[in-house]
Amino acid sequence: MIDTVMIACVALILIGMAATIAARDPFDKLISLSVMIAGVFPFIADRGYLDVAIAVALVAPISTIFILMACRRETA
């Protein structure tokens, strides 16, 4: 992986992490979490673990849906 792309992916992970910590609304937290997951994928694909990338890509949205079942919008 060339340096610019690596720096960009690290920046994506750090932006997502900081936004997840800072967010108050549960929906904002989930959206920031998906930004962080997006930054992880190029590192998995760069090593050639495409099967791991496919598995993570299918598991991550399912976990989000389970979290969404726990935080419905009664509070807001």
Binding site: L30, I31, A53, A60, P61, T64
Partner: peptide, 14 residues
Amino acid sequence: AAYFVGSTLESNAI
């Protein structure tokens, strides 16, 4: 494609 569809499904659910 799996990443893209997964991310779309996540946005749809949110």
